[in-house]
């Protein structure tokens, strides 16, 4: 089996020893680390996302897979430095909207986004509408991702978009929304660029938005 396939298997099986050994092997044998990440780690985490979607595994298993991946990436980091630019899928600001203290869904999305190479800036739960705006201006991510679990708090999400418009910066950034009560037609109605029905879908949408953003430059 190819080393990349073995990494993929190691992530899917959540086998720490295998991943540590293979990451060291990548360095020793001077194998392309970028390919190892794309074809091994990221592909493995994608499969982990699929397994979670089918409830073959649960959040603790997903977190373990992410931890193991990060251990492997830490070993590869010295040889990645020069190539780190091409490694980053994109930068995303993530948070659960003002008034909403439920962040499990957002945390799942975070794990899978990181597994796909995104840099995630997690603002946490009950994030004030204006904090999204301030943090965007400070950190300039590619995407702002906003979630809600409650119908009562979902109504705060459009205010993020309205405030971006009022500052004339709406077109600079992609906005994606999600959460149990959020429907695709509502996402469109409020002018969001993307909507994810599940964590797995959210990652696909985020990648699509990044491709659109880069394509429009």
């Amino acid at each position: 089996m190819e080393v990349f396939d073995r990494i993929y298997e190691g992530i899917v099986n959540r086998d720490r020893e295998v991943i540590v050994a293979l990451s060291k092997e990548i360095i020793e044998k001077q194998i392309d680390p970028v390919q190892a990440i794309e074809q091994g780690f990221k592909r493995g985490m994608e499969k982990i996302g699929d397994m979670f979607a089918d409830l073959e595994i649960f959040i603790p298993d997903m977190i373990t897979a992410a931890d193991i991946m990060n251990e492997g990436l830490a070993i590869l980091r010295p040889v990645l430095k020069e190539k780190s630019g091409e490694m980053l899928t994109g930068k995303i600001l993530l948070g659960t909207i003002q008034g909403d203290v439920h962040e499990i869904g957002k945390n799942i999305v975070k794990v899978l986004l990181e597994g796909s190479g995104f840099e995630v800036i997690d603002l946490g739960r009950d994030v004030d509408v204006l904090t999204f705006i301030d943090k965007y201006q400070e950190l300039r991510p590619d995407i702002i991702g906003v979630s809600a679990l409650m119908t009562t708090t979902m109504v705060n999400i459009p205010r993020v978009i309205e405030n971006l418009k009022s500052l004339g910066i709406r077109d600079e950034v992609k906005v994606m929304v999600g959460g149990a009560p959020v429907l695709p037609e509502w996402a469109e109605e409020i002018g969001a660029d993307g909507y994810g029905d599940s964590a797995r879908e959210a990652v696909k949408v985020a990648k699509k938005l990044i491709a659109e953003k880069r394509g429009s430059r």
Partner: peptide
């Protein structure tokens, strides 16, 4: 409510 979103807080 009366044309305004019921925003928490």
């Amino acid at each position: 409510y009366r044309g305004m979103p019921v925003t928490s807080g």
